[in-house]
Design a protein around this nucleic acid. Structure first.
Lengths: 213, 213, 213, 213
DNA sequence: CATGAATGAGAATTCATTCAT
DNA sequence: TATGAATGAATTCTCATTCAT
């Protein structure tokens, strides 16, 4: 019974921790960091405000974890693609596609990477995250240039531009409009933009299309 | 005399209004929306906190105007370049260069186009501003495709990607590093990225860049 | 009118500041630092909690001022007596009497010198205050020993003991009992104790009396 | 078996109760009442926070007992000295020495007799404890006056002054300075002060001080 | 009996907004 | 019209106490 109980306890505790993270993530996604107060997170997680502090030492720590765990997850997926098989162009395409598709599932998740949080610690985590994103693309650019797939270029700047390009394209009011119908076209458009930008000669799949509104 | 006084009054009123806007703009540029309290704006404008409310119905309204007027100004400059002389590539280069250079002068002002403000109304103004930025580039893209300078492409997406690419590249920790020495390279790198991305075949050097704020 | 208004304003502001200090002092005197919350001080001063922060940057700063101003006042009085005319014994007697009498007017003011406050800054101010009290007596002791009025002794320890002796005697449940009738005897008893303790050969006025309950 | 178990139970219960008291005492001694939370006491006692409430109805009750038991212990030691052999002066010296030495071992425990706790009930216990301390000295003073060792004096006031004198001298910043080297001098200085204060003609050296805790 | 997660009241502090002067 | 003192609601965070397990 003791085993059983402690097992259930742990279950519930882990559950609560996840519920808090999930609630915080959802609130940030919906309204940005400014609307994610401890009280709101607690209410959304079905707990009291004080209970949050059993799981996280401070509001900043909670949101740092929200941010880093989301970024870690995303980075892991991108890394797997970036270090996979195929030519660099294909892998770059895969990274952009993958990120874009997942961002469109939870349209405002990417928002958290951009939104300015009030707490300095969280802001630092956010900037670090963006940098880490950039590094994935930077590696690909270096590899592509060395392999002769891409022309010589400033890889630092290029990496930042890629991250900016697709986060902007995903977040801008453009995205919500493209709820279902246009998603494929949106993703494909972003991919095409990025591939052209890095100077990929083969498109990795297909080339750019005509003028779209 | 009554005329005279009311005229002077209006002068002074208009003056105060501008002073408030200027102070608010400066504060946002220095520390983001989160550090621009009404008290700070008032002090910086040499007025009392209460006086702000004679000119603006609320803090949100003030910052909406700060944002839209800053964006209006920026847009006007970009429009002048975009509708100027020269081929589309040159003009696109001019737009990106112009924005990037001005953003690097006061890094946080551009930040304000991205940073999330507390109030929803301000946020909406910000998103609208980004959209308007995009539209400048969208026009250029359409023109460029029609002129045969750029290949067929999704111009909506491309416009958003351009805005995202250069704002990200300007804001990322990359930028501070480039304090003085690397500024030219940074701007040139961003321009090159964007030109490649839209498929410009010539580099667009020597384009009309006469308009500066 | 402008003069008049600003004058009245300043009056009221100074008034409020004093009211806050007075309210804080009273609350500390009644229930110690722990019962003097910002809310309680504000209510007692007839203001909102937020208004306190127009006059004091923090709770700690408020109570540091409560403490130091009370101590400053007391020290000034003691110094005047200590540096006055007469032999050292008389002046020591005067100091103890003076402090004791004033402490008995507001019985718990001395309490603030002893009560442990929550905030470190306040605590430091309190310890400093006690030390400053001690130094007044230390000076007297040194002078007395040099003048041959007191025998050689450890003046540091003696000074601390004097401060402890009379604050304890004033604060202990002994004091409230002695509301009116016994006040003279209480003060005289404390004085006698201290004079004997420092080895004063003449009592400064009269000697100790018989056993009292 | 039932007997056995209930016996063991009682053993363990009594054990836990003592562990809690000991932990609470240690925490108060280290950091004062303000830093002794129920959670900290529980953790230090190797129990859960909830378990505290099986042994004590409230935090206040726990700390009242911490205080009274510590005082009981101290009083018992003082009583043993006060009612021991030797002249009154020797015994008074023994009491002051004994208390001072023990207080210097754990400076904050003595501090607890002075420091203001948050709860009123605890504060009352503290004041009662000080009074009881005073009564030990009052008895000695009465005896000393009757024996002709001390001059006639106000014994109530004298007792309070003695308690105040040595607690103050022990707690004041003087004490920490006297970490090791100066301890003997400090204790001797306090003793000398007190003996002079009560008018003892002999120094009381070599008194019975056999009882130590 | 013991646990420790959860609560809820209350702490200090900040700040947009109002309003008497 | 301009002031800036005052408000009051909201913020994060703490902790004694309770209670389902």
């Amino acid at each position: 019974m003791s085993y059983r109980r402690s097992f259930l306890m742990e279950e519930r505790l882990a559950d609560n921790r996840q519920r808090i993270l999930k609630a915080a993530r959802a609130l940030v996604a919906e309204g940005g960091f400014n609307h994610a107060s401890i009280a709101a997170v607690a209410a959304s997680a079905g707990l009291s405000a004080g209970a949050i502090y059993r799981y996280f030492p401070s509001k900043a720590a909670l949101f740092v974890e929200v941010l880093t765990s989301a970024i870690d997850h995303e980075i892991a997926i991108l890394q797997a693609i970036a270090k996979g098989a195929g030519d660099v162009t294909c892998r770059l395409r895969g990274c952009v596609e993958s990120f874009a598709n997942r961002a469109l599932e939870g349209p405002y998740l990417a928002y958290a990477f951009i939104a300015e949080p009030a707490e300095q610690e969280v802001d630092e985590a956010r900037l670090l995250g963006r940098k880490r994103f950039g590094e994935v693309f930077k590696s690909l650019l270096i590899e592509g240039v060395e392999a002769g797939e891409f022309p010589a270029q400033s890889v630092d700047i290029g990496a930042a531009c890629i991250v900016g390009a697709f986060t902007e394209a995903l977040i801008r009011p453009i995205a919500p409009r493209a709820k279902r119908e246009g998603r494929k076209e949106l993703v494909e458009g972003i991919v095409a933009f990025c591939l052209r930008a890095v100077g990929a000669t083969i498109s990795g799949r297909k080339a750019g299309r005509g003028v779209r509104a």
